[in-house]
């Protein structure tokens, strides 16, 4: 188990290093941040002073070496634009995104699994057809359009929910969160739902396929033959068997939801890291983009790791194999 853990960590460091290199040089090729950062009305000496301060007067490989030196000491660079450490900047925006992602996943599970199981248990009912049709729409329409539609329906047409922003926040363990106030919660619902639509559709499909397959197994029939209630048969015997693929996919998707909440955050003006990334790319704020990417990779690695742990909790057969390996 320990060997597995160390190997896993080593792999993730390698991935992070490669990622950082690619992003660093990639952004260097996209454009020169000087053009955007320097005030052209300043005199030449002031301009040169600014360029030197940002380290942009050096050749690119020197810049890269300096970046590596910084990484080794835990410093991912200072934002060109905000003049604060990039990592600090991202971490200050992270709670908003995490909150959004958490609620999106919650929606995906709480809405997706019951609907999917219903469609799997009663494949021919009209309800199932509506659910499956809905999931196709959820899959295939672009996310920004879904967001705009949500705003149009709930914010413009019915005027029940606000269209953007984070609303009132309160501090929870020193971190500002929205979901503890009524106003914040109202602001949270639409973006979280928008971020969740795709995941809900995915979970519906997975749970439906799983339920349809598991329902035919002998052990489900046997559970009924033992006189168990339908609630117990569906809620324990079937549910526990379909959770493995759902947890796998949701685990991978959790990373996606956090890392690529960009569209939703832009549409709903949600002040999270996705919006920060878009702004930073627009301004060629290289330290922020690189730090963001490295953080994202780290997050994916950690999530995959926890998904593996969750498997063994769900499926005793995997537990045994892992113990022997």
């Amino acid at each position: 188990m320990l060997a597995y853990l160390i190997r896993r960590l080593g792999q993730s460091f390698l991935v992070m290093a490669v990622m950082a290199t690619i992003v660093f040089f990639g952004l260097y090729m996209v454009g020169n941040p000087i053009d955007l950062l320097i005030n052209p009305e300043d005199d030449l000496a002031a301009q040169e002073e600014a360029i030197r301060r940002l380290g942009l007067d050096q050749p690119v490989y020197i810049q890269f070496l300096q970046f590596l030196k910084g990484v080794a000491t835990g410093n991912l660079g200072v934002s060109f634009v905000h003049n604060t450490p990039a990592l600090e900047l991202i971490l200050s925006r992270l709670p908003a995104t995490l909150e959004l992602a958490f609620f999106a996943m919650l929606f995906a599970v709480l809405i997706g699994i019951p609907l999917g199981m219903f469609a799997g248990l009663y494949p021919k009912s009209p309800g199932s057809r509506i659910i499956m049709g809905g999931s196709i729409i959820g899959f295939s329409t672009p996310n920004f359009w879904q967001g705009l539609m949500l705003i149009m329906l709930f914010a413009v047409f019915w005027r029940v929910l606000p269209s953007g922003g984070r609303g009132e926040t309160t501090e929870l363990f020193g971190v500002p969160v929205s979901f503890l106030t009524l106003d914040g919660l109202k602001h949270l619902i639409l973006p979280a739902l928008n971020l969740a639509i795709f995941k809900i559709s995915l979970v519906i499909r997975l749970s439906r396929a799983g339920t349809a397959e598991v329902s035919l197994q002998d052990y489900v029939k046997y559970a009924r033959a033992r006189g168990l209630s339908e609630k117990r048969v569906v809620g324990v015997h079937i549910l526990k068997n379909i959770l493995i693929p759902v947890v796998t996919v949701l685990g991978l998707e959790l990373g996606n939801v956090i890392a690529f909440a960009v569209v939703t955050e832009t549409v709903f003006a949600w002040p999270g890291i996705g919006k920060l990334l878009i702004d930073s790319i627009g301004l060629l704020d290289r330290p922020v983009v690189v730090a963001y990417m490295m953080l994202t990779v780290f997050m994916f690695v950690m999530i995959n790791f926890f998904v593996d742990m969750a498997y063994s909790m769900l499926d005793p057969r995997i537990r045994i194999k892992a113990g022997k390996a």
Partner: peptide
């Protein structure tokens, strides 16, 4: 009560 044919398939694999 009923006893099924294949004992490998009768008991739910994920429950003790």
């Amino acid at each position: 009560a009923m006893i099924f044919q294949d004992p490998m398939m009768t008991l739910n694999p994920v429950l003790r």
